[in-house]
Amino acid sequence: MSKKVEFLYLSQEDVRAAGGLDMKMTMEAIERAFKLLNAGQVIIPDKIVMELPPGERERGRINGLAAYIGGDWEVAGIKWIPSFPKNPFQRGLPRASALIILNDTQTGLPLVVMDGTIPSAMRTGAVGGVGAKYLARKNSEVLCLIGLGVQARTQAMAIKEALPSLKKIRGYDKAVERGVEGAKEIEKLTGVPTKYFSTPEEAVMGADVIVTATVANEPIVKEKWVKDGSLFIHIGSYVEEEYEVVLNSDKIVVDDWHVVKHRKTPVLARMYDEKLITDSDIYANLDEIVAGKKPGRESDDERIFFAPIGMAHEDVAVASMIYERAKREGIGKTLTLWNEPIWI
């Protein structure tokens, strides 16, 4: 009996060919994953965050996110993702790059190794989109994007999918050239008129949904700019808004409060450590809302603050979706792990 072990390898081009840029499919995978999480069929160890000296904002960090998903998925996996903020400006390289490995849960053997850069960006956008589906006003027309990098693109794609009523997108980025080009790219991706503004105030004022996706560590968005009935989605890793934006929200929603507190750097974790908010101030984890255990938006006047930190089961779900499609359509390259194991 042969003990040869093979696995599928998917390059970034293969991932794209297997639906990696299909936002509707990605959002469906994310919702399904959160329902399984609520049903107790997901295992997520704490995220590994390896900060490289002198500090993650000066040089970079590498994160490791692992998860098991049961149900009709029955798969385990890990994403290894470096984040080096200076790459786009100094080296012409993406800030984040990633690899994802999925494993068979009966043998532990690898099923696939794939580029994780696209799945990671898409799943982060999709979580914002799923949040908008449940937490934004259904007639929302104006989206504001603070930060017009890669994450702004996938957030815009997902929020457009969640809110077909969207009519305008406004954007701000402190890097003018990136902001102007980012706005053009977002308009192409979404079909929604998108305009770059030279100040964050102009971009935020009157917006129904506000998304911050930056590496800022000081407030960009002021409380007085945020209107009643809006949804604020905080995607960045640090502090992007005045604390009052959080404190004056009617509901605070996260993907998982334990994970947010474990990370320490996001605005909600800092506010918790500074005793400005407590556990009881968190209205819900997203899985409770997706599973129907708690209502999302209950009135058009509510201000809601949603701050997903990013969870490993999201990556495993999206990667599994891509892997399943790649197998069906014969995409990718089969590689040999071993012909015969050296030891048993």
Results as ranks from 00 to 15, higher is better:
Val75Glu: 05
Lys47Cys: 02
Thr117Arg: 09
Gly149Asn: 11
Gly70Ala: 13
Ser198Thr: 00
Pro119Gly: 12
Gln41Tyr: 01
Pro45Cys: 06
Ser11Asp: 09
His258Ser: 10
Leu109Asn: 08
Asp315His: 11
Leu337Val: 11
Met1Pro: 15
Ile101Thr: 15
Lys294Ala: 05
Val253His: 10
Cys144Met: 03
Gln155Trp: 00
Thr199Arg: 05
Tyr68Leu: 14
Arg137Ser: 03
Glu302Cys: 06
Leu231Ser: 02
Trp80Glu: 04
Leu8Arg: 13
Pro308Leu: 03
Gln90Val: 02
Ala203Pro: 02
Pro341Cys: 14
Asp279Ser: 12
Leu247Ala: 06
Thr124Gln: 12
Gln90Tyr: 10
Val42Gly: 03
Ser249Asp: 06
Phe89Ala: 02
Glu274Asn: 09
Asp301Leu: 09
Val42Arg: 10
Tyr283Thr: 09
Val290Met: 04
Leu99Arg: 14
Leu109Lys: 15
Lys333Val: 15
Ala317Glu: 00
Trp225Ser: 00
Val254Tyr: 04
Gly229Pro: 02
Ile159Phe: 05
Asp250Thr: 06
Gly191Trp: 07
Tyr272Lys: 11
Lys275Glu: 14
Ile210Asn: 01
Ala152His: 05
Val226Trp: 02
Thr107Arg: 14
Ala67Leu: 04
Ile235Tyr: 01
Pro219Glu: 10
Gln155Gly: 07
Arg59Ile: 00
Asp279Gln: 08
Asp228Pro: 01
Thr199Val: 03
Gly108Lys: 14
Ile233His: 10
Val245Thr: 09
Arg178Pro: 00
Asn87Tyr: 07
Cys144Ala: 15
Thr214Gly: 01
Lys293Glu: 10
Glu185Leu: 15
Leu111His: 07
Ile344Pro: 05
Tyr196Arg: 02
Thr190Met: 11
Val5Gly: 13
Lys195Leu: 14
Thr194Trp: 00
Lys174Gln: 03
Ile233Glu: 02
Phe306Gln: 07
Thr265Ala: 12
Pro82Tyr: 08
Gly149Tyr: 04
Ala132Val: 10
Lys261Ala: 05
Pro295Ser: 08
Leu268Val: 00
Leu163Gln: 10
Ala132Asn: 10
Val142Arg: 04
Asn103Thr: 15
Gln151Met: 12
Ile43Ser: 07
Ala317Arg: 01
Gly292His: 07
Val142Leu: 09
Gln155Glu: 05
Ile43Gly: 00
Val226Pro: 13
Thr190Pro: 04
Ile220Trp: 00
Thr194Leu: 02
Arg137Gln: 11
Glu181His: 10
Ile342Gln: 08
Val142His: 04
Val221Trp: 06
Tyr283Pro: 11
Glu314Cys: 13
Ala291Arg: 13
